[in-house]
Amino acid sequence: MRADPSPDPRQERSAQSDEALRQAHASPPAEPTGSNVGLSVGLAIVFAAVAYVAGIYLDRYSGRFSPLAYNEEAPPIAAGAAAVPPPIDPVVLGKKQYAAACVTCHQPTGLGVPGAFPPLAGSEWVTGNEERVIRVVLHGLSGEIKVGDKVFNGAMPSFGKVPGSGYNWRDDQIAAVLTYVRQEWGNKAGPITPEKVAEVRTKVTRDKPWTAAELSAVESAP
């Protein structure tokens, strides 16, 4: 019927019945014919090549299936890198803390404001006894204080996790900011550890700021 001399172009003719179509496609080829073998081999070769490339690609760009790998060019991130964060440099943390709170009074230079806020640079209160300076930051300080040869009279708030503190800094934050001010602006005192801060905080119970006189007594403490 494909040879129908004058098919009506307005109707599509079936060229074969559904049954014939099914039968033609149902029977498997009796034996591999020439073109079929060529196609089999060709498909197998092409697919093997593609699978090889796909496999290489997967290996190269999978980031070892890590949820933290976002750059396929970067070296793989070690397992557990997220669980163990890199150690914090106390000076970096301290600088942040200083910039967040201390800088308003003691200034970026650490020189304070003459007549109002005492300097930290070159101050014996800062570089001296560890326990004393920890107490100042933990609980605050008020009243007259002599720094160098000048006398200041002000009030420093408490920063530690103690009653009445509006800051509630953790031990490591206080340790970091003290380490920072003890080593900045030419100061050359040793670092202060969070353990030392924790020790002072548990040992000393206090709910009001220190006075300079009280702190001077600490000097003699062991």
Partner: peptide, 24 residues
């Protein structure tokens, strides 16, 4: 994570098999 799109790209490459057969 990079593996998510990478799996997709790899399988896109493998999918050429389907297109080759449809073409044949």
């Amino acid at each position: 994570p990079v593996w998510v799109p990478t799996v997709g790209v790899s399988c896109t490459l493998l999918l050429t098999l389907h297109y080759l057969i449809v073409a044949s």
